[in-house]
Design a protein around this nucleic acid. Structure first.
Lengths: 172, 172
DNA sequence: AGGAGCATGTAAGCGGTTACATGATTTA
DNA sequence: TAAATCATGTAACCGCTTACATGCTCCT
């Protein structure tokens, strides 16, 4: 459905759409080429999008897709349909849950790794937010993400501090 | 893999495991019976778990599984293997991203719905945390979740306020 | 009388990722 | 010269959800 959303904003190729996904909403919604190209073909068959082939030198022809009236209706209908619940898959949290079975050092390095990743995600998203011109809603979505990563980071730092305090309970 | 983790804590049936998943880590890791039973069979074939059949009156026999030495090793190996990145699938955020195509009222009711859901999730998790005796790590995992929901709630409330302020810019 | 809870399982299907194949151009 | 970017696509596979099937007991 995100595909139709991006096409609402203008003509795009499958390649473009992948980039947009990655850069803007990759942190909460992801796809691969293997998903996008077949999806576009299907959308075309259903008459929701139209393809324009743009010949290119030295590259495969570019397939530019634009949304049809029918596609717009489908998209608007989607926007009004019941929301799917948000789903989080966190291997990290699963491991924390079972952390009684590993050593404190291993636990600590797990936290450290997740902290590193979180920081990286934060910075990547921050960069995107500053690079692109985005509308109010796009910006809000990204600030949601930013805020989420920041908060997550804080929790991780707190837990690492707690661990270290246990190691050295003598400290004042 | 969560299955092996639960079996580390003692003998469980497939049904038990499903309940535990739902109640404790359901907010970031989910499964259905259709996933658990086949997985248990596979684990048994591989020699990672052992089945004990407990006859019951008026119900199907209960299949109690316990983890084998081999299974423990597999679990410990997993705990030391590279972490999968955390993945979030949020239909809500996707819709926010494309909210320019819906009216303010529709947007507002979307926010309200997500707020309601978030509150419910928070309360459900809070209840679980208070009901069960959990170890340090299990508690921490849940507090992670609690904190996540709380934070999310705040962001939603802020955005709703911002919207309402736009509606009535005259207010002091 | 009906619904929730206990308890196990199968089959169909779907959405999606991973990996592969191709190949010119630009950048480091 | 190697890697990244542009650009499209297919095939295999995988894990998982949904739906179905069964049926007793306890609570309301």
């Amino acid at each position: 459905m995100g595909i139709l959303g991006f096409l609402m904003k203008g003509e795009r190729s499958g390649y473009d759409i992948r980039q947009l996904f990655q850069e803007s909403i990759g942190f909460f919604y992801n796809t691969s080429y293997g998903g996008i190209y077949p999806a576009l073909n299907k959308l075309e068959k259903e008459g929701n999008v139209q393809k324009t082939v743009v010949p290119q030198a030295g590259k495969p022809n570019k397939n530019l897709y634009s949304i049809t009236k029918r596609g717009q209706e489908v998209f608007e209908q989607y926007m009004r349909s019941p929301m799917d619940p948000t789903i989080v898959y966190s291997d990290f949290l699963l491991r924390v849950f079972f952390a009684q079975y590993i050593s404190q050092e291993e636990y600590r390095s797990m936290l450290l790794e997740e902290l590193k990743r979180t920081k990286e995600s934060f910075q990547a998203l921050q960069k995107v937010e500053q690079t692109y011109e985005v509308d109010v809603f796009e910006r809000f979505t990204m600030q949601f993400g930013l805020s989420y990563f920041q908060h997550f980071e804080e929790l991780l730092v707190q837990e690492i501090r707690r661990l270290d305090a246990l190691q050295r309970p003598d400290m004042e």
